[in-house]
Every structure is written in C-alpha cells, then in structure tokens.
Amino acid sequence: SKDAAQYVYDEAQKGVTQVTVNGVTFKFDNWQKLLKYAQKLLN
C-alpha cells in the first residue's frame, strides 16, 4: 500500500537499514538501498 511505502520511505530517511511492515521485516546492507526500495514502492 502507499501508506506502507511512505512509512518505509520515512524510515529510510532516518538512516535505518531495516524496517518492519505488516509483520514483515526487510533488511538492507545500507539505508540507501532501503531508500531505493521505498522509492520503487512509491512509484
């Protein structure tokens, strides 16, 4: 959902490398990768 994507995006902006959405945890090597993933979700 857009809300989940926005949440992931906001978390990535904080510099975190993992985020949990609806009980599913996504882990990334660095926050830039998390940010890229979030941007994909938002598009």
Rank of each mutant, 00 (worst) to 15 (best):
T20M: 06
V16K: 04
N30P: 04
G15A: 06
T20E: 08
F26P: 03
Q6R: 02
Q6Y: 03
T25L: 10
Q13I: 12
Q18S: 07
F28Y: 04
Y37L: 13
T25V: 11
V8F: 10
L42A: 02
N30L: 09
D3C: 15
D29Q: 12
K27T: 05
Q32T: 05
E11C: 15
D29L: 14
F26I: 12
T25A: 11
L42F: 07
L42W: 07
Q13H: 07
V21H: 08
K14W: 14
G23A: 14
D3W: 08
N43G: 03
K33E: 13
Q6L: 12
K27F: 15
Y7E: 15
A38Q: 00
N22R: 09
N43D: 03
W31L: 11
E11T: 14
S1C: 15
V24H: 03
Q39Y: 11
K27V: 15
Q39R: 03
Q6F: 04
L35C: 12
K40Q: 05
Q32N: 06
N30G: 10
K33Q: 09
V24W: 13
V24Q: 07
V19H: 04
K14S: 08
K36N: 08
K40D: 06
K40G: 04
V21K: 10
A38V: 14
T17S: 04
Q32C: 05
Q39P: 00
F28S: 02
V21T: 10
T17N: 05
D3R: 01
Q13E: 11
K2E: 08
E11D: 10
K2M: 05
T17W: 13
V16A: 06
D3Y: 02
L42N: 01
E11R: 01
E11K: 10
K2H: 08
D3E: 03
A4W: 14
K27Y: 14
V16Q: 07
N30T: 12
V8H: 04
A38K: 00
T17Y: 14
Q39V: 06
K36G: 07
D10C: 00
L34E: 00
E11L: 10
D3A: 02
V21C: 14
Q18Y: 09
E11V: 14
Y9Q: 11
K14P: 10
V16E: 05
G23F: 14
Y9C: 14
Y9F: 11
K2D: 14
T20R: 07
Q13F: 14
F28P: 02
Y9H: 07
V24D: 01
Q13R: 04
Y7W: 12
L35D: 00
T25N: 05
K33L: 09
L41A: 01
D10N: 08
A5R: 01
L42R: 00
L42M: 04
S1E: 08
L41W: 04
W31S: 00
S1D: 08
Q39S: 03
V24L: 12
T17H: 07
W31T: 00
Q18P: 09
N43M: 11
N22K: 09
W31A: 00
Y9I: 10
G23S: 04
K2L: 11
A12F: 13
Y37M: 09
Y9T: 13
Q32A: 10
F28D: 02
L34M: 01
L42D: 00
K33P: 02
N43I: 06
A38I: 14
Q32E: 06
G23H: 07
Y37A: 01
T20C: 15
T20Q: 05
S1K: 09
S1P: 14
Y7K: 06
F28K: 03
N30I: 15
Y7G: 14
L42Q: 01
D10V: 13
N43S: 05
G23W: 13
L34Y: 02
Y37K: 01
G15S: 10
D10I: 15
Q32I: 13
T17K: 02
Q13C: 15
A5C: 15
L42I: 04
V8L: 10
V19Y: 02
G23M: 12
V19D: 02
N30E: 07
L42S: 01
A5S: 10
V24G: 03
L41H: 01
Q13P: 06
S1W: 15
Q39C: 15
Q39M: 12
V21Q: 06
V19M: 10
F26Y: 09
V19S: 02
N22G: 07
K2F: 15
T25Q: 06
K36E: 15
G23N: 02
T20W: 12
F26D: 02
L34W: 02
N43P: 01
A38L: 15
V21W: 03
V21N: 07
Y7L: 12
Q6C: 15
Q6D: 13
L35G: 00
V16W: 10
K2S: 11
T25S: 07
A12S: 04
V8I: 08
L35H: 01
N43T: 02
V24N: 06
T20V: 14
Q18K: 07
K2P: 08
L41E: 00
L34R: 00
Q13S: 08
Y9R: 03
Q18G: 08
A4M: 04
Q6G: 07
N22F: 15
W31I: 05
Y9V: 06
E11H: 06
Q6W: 13
K14E: 09
W31Q: 00
L34N: 00
S1T: 13
K14I: 13
K36Y: 08
K36V: 06
Q18F: 09
F28W: 06
K33G: 04
K40A: 09
Y9S: 11
T25M: 11
W31C: 09
A12T: 10
K36M: 05
K36T: 05
K33R: 05
K14Y: 05
F26E: 02
L41Q: 01
F26N: 03
W31R: 00
K36H: 09
L41R: 01
T20I: 10
L35W: 03
F28C: 15
Q32G: 06
G15L: 14
Y37G: 00
Q13L: 10
K36D: 12
N22T: 09
D29Y: 12
N30F: 15
G15E: 07
L35I: 05
V19L: 12
V8D: 11
D10Y: 07
F28I: 09
K27E: 05
V24Y: 09
K27A: 15
